[in-house]
């Protein structure tokens, strides 16, 4: 037990260091809050880092298709924690009827990527905090704690600073913005153990009802539940210790294209 605590303490200390370091470098920053467990943990750490008075906004990219539990949770805690909440929506695309029924790719692109681009342009953010973790998905294993993106949002993963021995490159070129990933080294199970230790609120979607729960949440239209009886944090932690199903298996638009690429490549189509 004591070793588990020290493991979480180490993660917490390192994340708070990264959060403060990024703020002192960039000032014009915001954190992305998807209301999911990871970014809510991040928010918890940000509150700790600045003693409950966060000196920058929390940005929610709202596609209009999120679960109703997500909106309720957002509004409740934005008030309770006195957040400077910014909600970014690509109103033009929403008005034009963009939705997952058109094309999932176009929908994500218009309602998430473009909405975020619009928000960055409008507020002039130089850096953004995100709650991504290396163990979520293969491609994220290549991420850095300070990760530059160019003006088109392109991530040149083969041309990144190395970050050996926790030496971070925190300077950005003019046309870039930096993504800051304080939770990069956390695992899904660390998140849940930390949620339990700190008693961090999470939406009810994560807890099993009628044999299913969500391991990863987002738009109601494109998230699938996993079969599970885990209706408490303890049971979730137990489940994570034994499962071999990936966290994002419920997300429609994710690793399928990686598999498709592999299959096409094996037949010479790439």
């Amino acid at each position: 037990m004591s070793s588990a605590l020290s493991h979480l303490d180490k993660l917490e200390n390192q994340s708070i260091f990264i959060i403060r370091e990024a703020y002192s470098q960039f000032r014009d920053v915001a954190m992305l809050w998807s209301i999911g467990k990871d970014s809510t943990c991040l928010l918890w750490l940000v509150r700790k880092a600045f003693f409950d008075r966060i000196p920058f906004p929390c940005l929610h990219i709202d596609t209009g298709y999120k679960f109703k539990e997500i909106y309720e949770f957002r509004d409740k805690y934005a008030k309770e924690w006195n957040l400077d909440l910014l909600v970014a929506r690509n109103e033009e695309a929403i008005a034009a009827g963009m939705g997952p029924d058109k094309s999932k790719f176009n929908c994500c692109n218009e309602l998430k990527t473009v909405a975020l681009k619009q928000a960055i342009a409008k507020h002039g953010f130089k850096a953004l905090y995100l709650g991504i973790r290396r163990d979520e998905h293969g491609i994220r294993a290549k991420e850095r704690v300070f990760s530059p993106r160019d003006e088109d949002f392109e991530w040149d993963y083969k041309n990144q600073p190395p970050e050996l021995w926790d030496q971070y490159k925190t300077k950005a070129a003019e046309e870039e913005h930096i993504r800051v990933h304080p939770l990069l080294g956390w695992r899904e199970i660390d998140i849940w153990e930390y949620v339990k230790r700190e008693n961090i609120p999470t939406t009810s979607l994560y807890f099993a009802k009628n044999g299913i729960r969500f391991r990863s949440i987002g738009c109601e239209t494109c998230c699938g539940p996993v079969a599970s009886e885990a209706d408490t944090i303890d049971k979730i932690v137990e489940e994570l210790k034994t499962t071999n199903i990936s966290e994002r298996s419920g997300q429609a638009q994710d690793k399928e294209s990686d598999y498709m690429m592999q299959k096409l490549r094996s037949l010479g189509y790439m």
Partner: peptide, 10 residues
């Protein structure tokens, strides 16, 4: 390719 991009899709 994704719209207005050089990223591939299937």
């Amino acid at each position: 390719l994704h719209p207005n991009s050089y990223r591939m899709r299937f």
